[in-house]
Design a protein around this nucleic acid. Structure first.
Lengths: 143, 143
DNA sequence: TTTGACCTGTGAGTAGGTCACAGGTTTTAG
DNA sequence: CTAAAACCTGTGACCTACTCACAGGTCAAA
């Protein structure tokens, strides 16, 4: 398979295939005649695997490590379970942050219902934002 | 005010002040004696405003646009309301996605309880991920 | 006067691709 | 047979919103 065939089979951008190849996740052979990369069914498996892992929140270095472990005939699963737990925790943290952001945004929106637009007068830029009170407990100054 | 004074007053990194200056959000004057940047109370207002807007989810180009509109004595408020609504919608979409991801991850984690680790055999890399079912309605292939 | 804290601009780094470019190859249509 | 379209190659820039490093200039206190 050539780049575009592989990319199409996996539903990704050809540049992503090239990128993953540069990053060492895919290991195609070369056609010495024309210097083209040649991918096989194994590469397709690896690429599909990588995409699934990315969807699950694994970083590219993590995916590479999993693939490398598998290449060495070590089971990557224990590592996968481990990283996965951490990713789940991160996802929950991200959710918390976004929920807080949404709350701040909704509060602001509600407060803006009754506020006039006003024209900037050299002291205010936009009251909507300037008069928005973002007082939240702790972590106001970074630690 | 010099860079660090302004930064301290607003609770940000001095490099952020320099960055915002490069990006045109702050417009200090120069001290011709030593070539230092000189910031005034207006810049402090702008910087604080920018930070609040960022917390509310506005992008840097959006913040710059708001400030520029205010500089031209146009009320940026209608634009602020508009962009803000869109941002809120985006945030809600992101939250939905993360909640779904969390659900899938938890499901996967539960399913993995009973799966053996296994050693890669050339056909499977890590069953945990490969056998993870990511079936979700729509948008499987990008549109 | 020396030391340390500050200033300057520039450039690189972060994650994960995506896109552009210039030039070589292969395929397809006429 | 040939010309154009479609593909391939590697390299490097771009995206966000900063943050950090570096080399060299400036200034305040001891």
């Amino acid at each position: 398979m050539k780049v575009k065939e592989l990319a199409t089979s996996a539903g990704v951008n050809p540049d992503t295939v090239r990128f993953y190849t540069r990053e060492g996740l895919l290991k195609p052979t070369r056609n010495p005649d024309n210097n083209y990369q040649h991918y096989d069914a194994e590469d397709l498996r690896r690429l599909r695997f990588a995409r699934k892992a990315r969807q699950l929140g694994f970083s590219l270095p993590e995916v590479r490590e999993i693939l490398d472990q598998a290449d060495d005939h070590h089971s990557p699963c224990p590592m996968v379970r481990d990283v996965f737990q951490q990713r789940l925790a991160e996802v929950e943290r991200e959710i918390d942050e976004l929920l807080q952001l949404r709350k701040r945004m909704k509060t602001a929106l509600a407060a803006w219902q009754d506020m006039p637009d006003g024209t900037p007068d050299g002291h205010t830029i936009c009251q909507l934002i300037e008069h928005w009170d973002d007082s939240k407990p702790g972590k106001q100054v970074e630690e």
